[in-house]
């Protein structure tokens, strides 16, 4: 239980920044000042463009975490549906037809996909999220299929079917319940990885505009001033790390509880 609490404590900071940050950033951060200044009405100083670092950290969450969460949600919507259909169908060819093409795409490196998409859609958050979703979809489909096929072919599902239970009830009540903990644990690590990927893409300049309020972009923009104004890099970096460590710990705890 203490693991869960630690994980939630770690996650709370970046999540609070993301949810409440944009609302209060106007009140907390002063007007733009000199580049890389420390103090002078700016609690954490300013970045290279003279923007308040704390304000930037408060506004950068929705972009980074939003893209990552959106990507994982989309990956689960697509991959989960594919995996469930493939697991529950009794037609071998449908199973093959659904998962074979997906397997072909499994080992393609994520940042390469973002590079290709970035050529035409640079600066578009939706395009990055979709690219990250597409990268994650095959693995989700495989995982859900594996988790669901045990439950779908087991004696309980068989008994429910003989009993005349509707298919929806078997799918949601029985198979869904068996899949859920696996999916939750996987979603945690997947979310942490998605945050990595999104932040790395933005750091490399493959994603958002260099002036966009985003943690990854902010780290890249201020990196040459690492010693002059460490907060400009450290504030967003610490928020990112807190989130990924928290998400990893939480999914670890979910896995452990299952035994």
């Amino acid at each position: 239980m203490s693991r869960v609490l630690t994980a939630c404590g770690l996650l709370a900071v970046p999540v609070l920044f993301t949810l409440a940050g944009p609302l209060i950033s106007g009140a907390v951060s002063g007007p733009d000042g000199a580049p890389y200044a420390l103090g002078g009405g700016h609690p954490l100083g300013t970045d290279g463009m003279g923007r308040d670092v704390l304000g930037l950290a408060l506004r950068g969450g929705p972009s980074t975490l939003g893209m990552a969460c959106g990507a994982v949600a989309a990956a689960y919507a697509m991959g989960g549906a594919l995996g469930l259909v493939a697991a529950t169908t009794r037609r071998q060819w449908l199973d093959e037809l659904l998962l074979r093409p997906v397997e072909v795409l499994l080992p393609i490196p994520s940042l390469l996909v973002i590079s290709v998409v970035g050529v035409g859609w640079r600066g578009s958050a939706v395009a990055i999220a979709l690219a990250v979703a597409a990268i994650n979809m095959p693995a989700v489909a495989r995982l859900i299929r594996a988790a669901a096929s045990d439950a779908a072919s087991g004696p309980v599902a068989e008994a429910m079917r003989l009993q005349g239970e509707p298919a929806v009830r078997i799918l949601v009540g029985h198979i869904g319940r068996a899949v859920l903990p696996v999916a939750l644990a996987d979603a945690g690590t997947r979310l942490a990885t998605a945050v990595f990927t999104v932040a790395a893409a933005n750091f490399l300049g493959l994603g958002l505009d260099p002036a966009a309020p985003d943690w990854g972009v902010a780290i890249a923009a201020s990196r040459e001033a690492l010693l002059v104004q460490p907060w400009a890099v450290c504030a967003p970096a610490v928020l990112l790390v807190l989130f990924t460590v928290g998400a990893n710990l939480l999914s670890d705890a979910v896995l452990r509880r299952r035994g």
């Binding site: 990595f196 790395a200 690492l226 010693l227 990924t244």
Partner: peptide
Amino acid sequence: ALTAIPDFVLALALVA
């Protein structure tokens, strides 16, 4: 701990 730190953050920290 190392799996949880993004590599670009680690790179910047080592450089610093």
